[in-house]
Amino acid sequence: MTNDILVVGAISAETQAAVIGVVKDLEKAFNAHDPIALSEQFAQEASWTNAVGTRLDGREAIAEFSGPAMKTFLRDSYARYDVVKLLELAPGLIALNVQQTPTNRSGSPVEGPRGVTTYVIAQQRDGWKIVVGQNSAVNAPPAG
C-alpha cells in the first residue's frame, strides 16, 4: 500500500506504518459501527469536523456523536480509506490525505458519496493519534 502513497519528508517506514495503521483502525471501527473504537483513534483533545461541517472537540464528543449516527443514518454505511499522501510537519507530527470510497459490507466499491479527509496525526503518550481532522464529501468523478 505504501508504494502508492506520496511521502513528503523523511518519514521512517516505522512511522509510515504507524500512522497508516491509525487510518486503517479508524476504517475498521467505522465499518464495524463501533463508536468507541472509532473515537480511540483520536487524541483526548482532538478537533474533528465531519462531512456535514459539524465540529466535534475531544474524544468524548466524537464518541457521543458517532454512537447515535452509527445506529441511524450511518447504519448501512461502509467505506474504504486509502491514504494517498503523508507530509511530515515536524518530528512526531504527520499530515495525511485520505480518499474514502463507499463500499458494501464485503468491502466492494458501490455507488454513493465519497470523501476526502485530511488528518494530522501526532505521537502521544498512548501512541499515534489523530489530533485534527477535516472530512469533506465530494461527488464521484464522471464516468467515461
Rank of each mutant, 00 (worst) to 15 (best):
residue 12 S to Q: 02
residue 12 S to V: 06
residue 13 A to W: 01
residue 13 A to G: 04
residue 14 E to R: 05
residue 14 E to Q: 09
residue 16 Q to Y: 05
residue 17 A to H: 06
residue 19 V to G: 11
residue 20 I to T: 10
residue 22 V to G: 00
residue 29 A to Y: 05
residue 31 N to P: 08
residue 31 N to F: 01
residue 32 A to E: 13
residue 33 H to G: 07
residue 36 I to K: 14
residue 37 A to Y: 04
residue 38 L to D: 09
residue 38 L to A: 14
residue 40 E to M: 13
residue 40 E to N: 12
residue 41 Q to I: 00
residue 45 E to P: 13
residue 46 A to C: 13
residue 47 S to W: 02
residue 48 W to M: 08
residue 50 N to D: 15
residue 51 A to F: 15
residue 51 A to Y: 11
residue 52 V to H: 08
residue 56 L to G: 00
residue 58 G to K: 14
residue 59 R to D: 00
residue 63 A to H: 12
residue 63 A to Y: 08
residue 66 S to E: 10
residue 68 P to R: 09
residue 69 A to M: 15
residue 69 A to R: 15
residue 71 K to F: 03
residue 74 L to H: 10
residue 75 R to F: 07
residue 78 Y to V: 02
residue 79 A to K: 03
residue 81 Y to I: 00
residue 83 V to P: 07
residue 83 V to R: 08
residue 83 V to L: 08
residue 86 L to S: 11
residue 88 E to P: 12
residue 89 L to D: 13
residue 93 L to G: 07
residue 93 L to R: 13
residue 97 N to G: 10
residue 98 V to D: 01
residue 101 T to D: 05
residue 103 T to Q: 03
residue 104 N to A: 08
residue 106 S to Q: 10
residue 109 P to E: 06
residue 109 P to A: 05
residue 112 G to L: 07
residue 115 G to P: 07
residue 116 V to I: 13
residue 118 T to M: 14
residue 119 Y to R: 07
residue 121 I to D: 05
residue 121 I to C: 07
residue 122 A to E: 13
residue 126 D to W: 04
residue 128 W to L: 04
residue 128 W to N: 04
residue 131 V to C: 00
residue 135 N to G: 05
residue 136 S to P: 01
residue 137 A to H: 03
